[in-house]
Design a protein around this nucleic acid. Sequence first.
DNA 1: AACTTCTACAACCGCAGGTCC
DNA 2: TGGACCTGCGGTTGTAGAAGT
Length: 270
Amino acid sequence: MGRQPCCDKVGLKKGPWTAEEDKKLINFILTNGQCCWRAVPKLAGLLRCGKSCRLRWTNYLRPDLKRGLLSEIEEKMVIDLHAQLGNRWSKIASHLPGRTDNEIKNHWNTHIKKKLKKMGIDPLTHKPIANDVNDQSQQEQSQNQLQEAQKSCPANDTFEVEQNTPAAQAIEEEGGGDELDKMELLIDGFCTDEVPLIEPHEILVPCAPSSSSSTSSSSSSSNSASNFLEDLHLPEFEWLCDYSNNNDSIGLWDDDFSSWGQESWAYGIL
DNA sequence: AACTTCTACAACCGCAGGTCC
DNA sequence: TGGACCTGCGGTTGTAGAAGT
């Protein structure tokens, strides 16, 4: 007896999400909270499987997401963390507030891998790329050591970022280690693993719409997903925002999601 | 201008682990 | 205790836009 598929695939939509679908999903999650993803599409009126809804929410629509390219510091952190954790993207992501495992995985595959190879560093072992057989066996040995270390590092342990891997050093030498201390402070005090799930009634709505802004965000779907927020009516929520350390105005209601999740956002209970 | 190739990233798939009954 | 169900994770694929020819 095989497992039941996660969803009845007949008649279900696949591929890129439309603004309308995003709207329905956001409305539903904000109203009902995250529960029982399998039931979400049906209840939200979406022709998607629950898995797809969860992915869309966690990777794209979640209000606490940062958008845009990873900074130098974040990139360096990813390399350090990867050296210690391997391809455990979700664990790596948990040390980078506002970043998703998918985002980090993509960034690793498209940017960091190339960068490291270019520098003569094996992205798998984080050691200088070796050419002969002896070096290869050395690499295997170090890889085994790495795996052993990973085993002995329980997931919830407080994590010390190793700054001494050749790869991380190479990246640092390229520039961009300035704010590292700041970032480490952030990590010491914050880990997404520890972030409690925000219940819908605890989610706040931006206190004021504003003109313009918006930094990044590139993809067409992100733009398509953005404008409909103007149409969202969420009377029971109020977003609070702290303008004090952010010169940009909040772009949520006019441009895209790029402002969601930045430090300037504050969440609280109404 | 049209076509091809490359790049970035969103989304899908299958599996593993946890929980519940 | 074991099976069913659900969620989360990691690898892979698909697609759109950019860049090159």
